[in-house]
Lab assay of single mutants.
Amino acid sequence: ADDEVAKLLVDAYRKNDEDKLEEVKKRYNISDEQVKRLIRKVL
């Protein structure tokens, strides 16, 4: 599931889509710190 979330985050990140990032964060209840970590893992 982590990889799936990471893909969604990276996708939103690449598109610079703040709304999507927020949506994913809320849906999976993850912190900014986790977001950064997941994005770093993929990029």
Rank of each mutant, 00 (worst) to 15 (best):
V42Y: 15
E4F: 14
D17P: 02
R27W: 06
V42R: 05
D11P: 00
Y28P: 00
K26T: 09
R27S: 05
D2K: 08
D17G: 02
L21H: 01
A6I: 15
I30D: 00
K26L: 10
L8K: 05
Y28E: 01
D19W: 10
L9A: 02
I39V: 08
A1G: 11
K41T: 09
D19I: 13
A1I: 15
D2R: 10
D32N: 07
E22F: 07
S31M: 02
R40Y: 15
D2L: 14
V42C: 07
S31Y: 01
A12N: 01
L8F: 05
K7V: 07
R40W: 15
L21W: 04
N16C: 15
K15R: 14
D11E: 12
A1H: 13
K15Q: 13
K25V: 04
K41G: 09
L21A: 03
N29Q: 07
E4W: 14
E23D: 08
K26Q: 10
D2A: 10
L8D: 03
D32Y: 04
K7T: 08
S31F: 02
V24L: 15
I30T: 01
I30G: 00
E18L: 15
I39L: 12
K20S: 08
V42F: 15
I30N: 00
R40N: 14
K25A: 06
K26P: 00
S31R: 03
R37A: 15
K20L: 14
V24A: 03
A12D: 01
A1P: 14
D2T: 11
D19G: 12
V10Y: 14
D32P: 04
L8V: 05
E18D: 11
A1Q: 11
D11M: 06
V10Q: 07
K7S: 08
Y28H: 05
E4I: 12
E22Q: 11
D32K: 03
V5K: 02
E23H: 05
A6P: 03
R14H: 08
K20G: 10
D32W: 15
E22G: 05
R27Y: 08
A1E: 12
R27E: 06
K7R: 13
E18V: 15
R40P: 02
R37D: 14
I39R: 02
R37Q: 14
L8W: 06
E18T: 15
S31A: 03
D19Y: 11
V42W: 15
R27M: 13
K26S: 09
K26D: 04
E4R: 09
K7H: 10
A12R: 00
N16P: 03
E22R: 12
L38F: 05
R37M: 13
R14E: 10
K26Y: 06
D2Q: 10
K36F: 10
R14D: 05
E33N: 06
E23A: 10
R14Y: 13
E18G: 13
V42S: 08
L43K: 05
D3S: 10
E33S: 07
D11H: 06
V24Q: 01
L38Y: 06
V24F: 09
K36L: 13
N29W: 02
L8I: 07
I30K: 02
V10M: 13
R40Q: 14
L21E: 00
V24H: 03
D17T: 02
I39M: 05
S31D: 08
Y28M: 02
K26C: 06
L43R: 04
I30M: 13
K25R: 08
D19F: 12
S31T: 13
E23T: 05
L9P: 00
E23Q: 10
V5G: 04
N16E: 07
L8A: 08
V24G: 00
D2E: 12
D11K: 04
I39N: 00
E18H: 15
K25N: 00
E22A: 11
I30V: 07
Q34R: 05
E33Q: 07
I39K: 01
E18W: 15
D3E: 10
V42N: 08
K20Y: 10
D11Y: 04
N16K: 11
D32H: 05
L8H: 04
D2C: 12
N16G: 15
E4A: 10
K41Y: 11
K20I: 08
Y13H: 04
K20H: 05
N29D: 06
E23V: 05
K20E: 10
R27F: 10
R37W: 13
K41Q: 13
V5S: 03
V10K: 04
I30W: 10
L43T: 06
K15S: 13
K26H: 09
I39D: 00
L38P: 01
V5A: 06
N29R: 05
D17K: 04
L43W: 08
V24Y: 13
D11G: 03
A1C: 11
K41C: 07
A12P: 01
D2N: 11
S31N: 09
Y13K: 02
K7W: 15
R27K: 13
L9R: 00
R40G: 13
V35I: 09
E18Q: 15
R37N: 13
D32L: 04
D32G: 04
A12H: 03
N29S: 07
L9D: 00
I30P: 00
Y13E: 01
K15E: 12
R40L: 14
N16I: 03
E23P: 01
Y28A: 01
A12I: 04
E18Y: 15
R27L: 13
R37P: 02
A6H: 07
D3K: 08
A12M: 03
V35F: 14
D32A: 07
R40D: 15
D3T: 09
K20R: 11
N29L: 04
Y13P: 00
Q34D: 14
D3P: 09
V10P: 00
A12K: 00
R14F: 15
E22S: 08
V35H: 02
D11A: 09
L9Q: 00
Q34Y: 12
Y13L: 09
V42P: 03
Y28N: 02
K26W: 05
K15D: 11
K41M: 12
Q34M: 13
V35M: 13
K36E: 14
K25L: 03
N29E: 05
K26A: 08
V10N: 03
L9G: 01
E33A: 09
D3R: 09
